[in-house]
């Protein structure tokens, strides 16, 4: 019995890994295509139909490219930093549930169906796990920036660390309102608590703080100061080339997926299609594949939003970024927390 469960887990894990890596590859394609359409260009359209094989060509090129390790670089850290970034980025996805799961009698006993949940690890402190793992991501960036032995990289890494810890605070505080209403740290329970109404509506202030902080946490424009091209060349990955550069890139896109999935879980109702009314009496036991479809569609919309924002807004200045984080978002998050807890106690 245990072995069957572990077997199912291994299949699920392989599937998740495959889907995430493919998604990351095609996100880079989507980003280039969408940015091209926004700027009235064509974008990559030569490799395969509509350029759809572009990510594969990119991947092959990354693998075969010559690798340059700059002189004076701290070699062990220089090599490990991109791997560390990528690993921490991917394992954060382990606790995201995408549906209720289904029962199967495929393995052996017909009278005892095995329940297959649609997440890798159902941890009761799932939200804390995501927060903890995503905040580890800063180490990869700082190590990469420091070990490159380049001034641009070092400044990019330091900036990134300061930015990420500043916004992590408001990110953590903005989530507390959601936990207060759901009464659980388990992501499954948090989504299930949104059957009547999405948390977006009672927690709109929290959602605002959460979204701004997510953009800063994932180093996306308008907050991509760590890699601001006009000032720092490419920030912490200035000296990186070939596969190591690609791994930093993949880590960045994986972080985007995590942020989108987390936003969908916490505020946008997870697998519930509309802000009100749950499933409208549809038999979810029977149509178990509907929740994952809704969930993934929402994640795609969020990813599109990330890309859309990047190619629409200009970049902040660093002092504006810090001011926004500490003097606007942090007080707002505390205010949201006090109001929510007051409502819970008095109503």
């Amino acid at each position: 019995m245990l072995w069957v469960e572990i077997g199912i887990s291994v299949v699920k894990i392989a599937l998740v890994l495959f889907v995430v890596l493919t998604l990351v590859a095609y996100l880079s394609y989507a980003e280039r295509r969408i940015s091209a359409f926004i700027q009235d260009r064509l974008g990559p359209n030569r490799v395969g139909p509509f350029g759809l094989l572009q990510p594969i060509a990119d991947g092959l090129k990354f693998i075969f490219k010559e690798d340059i390790i700059p002189e004076g670089a701290n070699k062990p850290f220089y090599i490990l930093a991109p791997a560390f970034s990528l690993v921490t980025a991917i394992i954060a996805l382990a606790v995201i549930p995408i549906g209720y799961g289904f029962n199967t009698t495929f393995f052996g006993n017909l009278n005892e169906p095995i329940h297959v949940s649609l997440q890798i690890a159902d941890i009761n402190a799932g939200l804390l796990y995501v927060l903890a793992i995503t905040s580890l991501g800063v180490y990869g960036i700082v190590l990469g920036g420091w070990s490159s032995n380049s001034k641009y990289s070092l400044l990019g890494g330091i900036r990134s660390a300061a930015q990420m810890i500043s916004y992590e605070l408001s990110l953590g505080l903005s989530i507390i309102g959601v936990i207060a209403i759901a009464g659980s740290l388990r992501l499954y329970d948090i989504i299930d608590a949104q059957a009547k109404v999405w948390f977006l509506i009672p927690q709109c202030l929290g959602f605002l703080v959460f979204m701004v902080s997510s953009f800063a946490e994932t180093n996306r424009l308008p907050f991509d100061l760590p890699e601001a091209e006009p000032e720092l060349v490419a920030g912490y990955h200035t000296e990186y080339s070939s596969m190591k550069f690609a791994m930093f890139y993949m880590a960045e896109y994986t972080n985007m997926i995590t942020a989108s999935a987390l936003a969908v879980c916490l505020f946008l109702g997870g697998w519930f299609p509309l802000p009100f009314g749950g499933w409208f009496g549809i038999d979810i036991e029977k149509y178990w594949y509907l929740p994952p479809i809704v969930f993934i569609a929402k994640v795609f919309l969020m990813l599109f939003f990330f890309i859309w924002v990047r190619w629409t807004l200009p970049r902040f200045r660093y002092d504006q970024l810090m001011r926004l984080g500490w003097k606007v978002l942090f007080p707002l998050a505390v205010l949201n927390l006090i109001v929510t807890s007051a409502i819970i106690v008095f109503v």
């Binding site: 693998i63 090599i79 690993v87 991917i90």
Partner: peptide
């Protein structure tokens, strides 16, 4: 769940190191 997490972590680590070695 925690066994799954461990398997996931090992596979991801294997993927990251494997990619570096392959390249």
């Amino acid at each position: 769940s925690y066994i799954n997490l461990l398997i996931f972590f090992c596979l991801v680590l294997l993927f990251a190191v494997g990619t570096l070695v392959l390249s």
